[in-house]
Computed example of a mutant assay.
Amino acid sequence: MENIQEYLPQQVQGKKVLISGGTTGIGRATAVLLAKLGATVAVFGRHEQELNDALRDIEEQAGVTVIGFTADTAKEEDIKKIFDTVKEELGGLDVLINNAAIGFGSVTDGGYKDWEYAVKTNLLGYLACAGEAIKIMKDNGGGHIVNIGSMSADVREEKSAVYVATKSGIQGFSEALRKQVNPDGIKISLIEPGAVDTDMQQQDTEKKREEVASGKMLKADDIAMAVLYCISQPKRCDVVELKVRPHLQLI
């Protein structure tokens, strides 16, 4: 190998990165990792307390401050707020990590407003953020969008029809969008994790620790490393789809 440097994580140094749902779980872990490696990171989430906790945590672990604000991708007016902030605070955008999502069951749970909010958050929010990011990236001559999906798109668990529908939508969206924007120098990567120790998992903390230790559940850091792998590749190389599952999660 002639030039190992083009594959090393230092490639993210100086990149301008926006992470939706960056205040908890996978988003927060990714923010810590990329900030440590010198990226300029902006995160947002729905709740002020979680945001404050995340900003403090990221600063302690990464040794740098990141941009943080509250926003809800299910709300059209907040999409404008997000990308106004990107332009003002980041001054551009190299990487969008579409990560904000909520868990949900089936159409036998809740009602229309509940399903609507889940679909807006888990699917429409990804579409809207990607659409706005592409406008900026085209002007910059390229960029990278990483969509955090779920293995649920393939497994299609019983009693999770609404969640499965949204993650299946992300799968199709990612593939079609990649074909459209690759000629503009914009990469699209889809990462589909299995079970991850985040707030979305309903087990108590001790149970989740046991699941991680036994190889039945991933840590959020594992998916952060998958994001890093995707965005660290040289320009000629696209990681189109990456499935990351716990060693003993067999379905």
Rank of each mutant, 00 (worst) to 15 (best):
A35Y: 01
Q61L: 14
V66S: 03
N3F: 12
L37V: 02
V164W: 00
V95I: 15
H47G: 08
K207Y: 13
Q171S: 15
K36Q: 13
K167E: 10
G131C: 07
G142I: 00
D222V: 01
N122E: 08
V43N: 05
I186G: 00
N182Q: 15
A35P: 05
A153K: 03
L123H: 06
K113P: 11
V66C: 05
V155I: 14
D139C: 14
K187P: 00
G103I: 05
A62C: 07
G194R: 00
N140P: 06
E210I: 09
I26Q: 10
L248E: 11
S232P: 12
G185D: 12
L8R: 14
Q180S: 12
A153T: 14
K81F: 09
L242K: 03
V239D: 04
R28F: 06
I148G: 02
I186D: 02
V196Q: 05
L18P: 02
V95P: 01
D94K: 03
D221F: 00
A100R: 00
E76S: 15
E132Y: 11
F83A: 09
D72C: 04
E116G: 07
Q202S: 11
A176S: 15
V107T: 14
F104Q: 02
A165H: 06
E210A: 12
S214T: 09
L93F: 06
I26E: 04
E89L: 11
A74N: 02
D221I: 01
D78V: 06
G185V: 02
F104D: 08
I231V: 11
V239Q: 01
S150V: 07
G14A: 12
K208F: 06
G68A: 08
M225Q: 15
K75R: 14
E192F: 04
Y112P: 07
T73W: 05
G215V: 08
P183W: 01
L127A: 15
V119W: 06
G169T: 07
V95N: 02
E192H: 06
V240W: 12
A35R: 01
I145A: 02
I82S: 05
V119Y: 01
K179S: 07
L18R: 02
A29R: 06
V95Q: 00
E241S: 14
A31I: 06
T73R: 05
L248P: 03
G141N: 02
C237M: 15
K159R: 14
K87R: 12
G25D: 08
G169Y: 04
D78G: 13
G103A: 14
L34H: 03
D154K: 13
N99Q: 05
R56M: 14
S150T: 07
G169D: 11
I191N: 05
I26M: 09
G143K: 02
S20L: 06
S106W: 06
G194L: 03
N99H: 08
A39P: 07
A220Q: 12
G105H: 07
A42M: 15
F173P: 01
G91I: 07
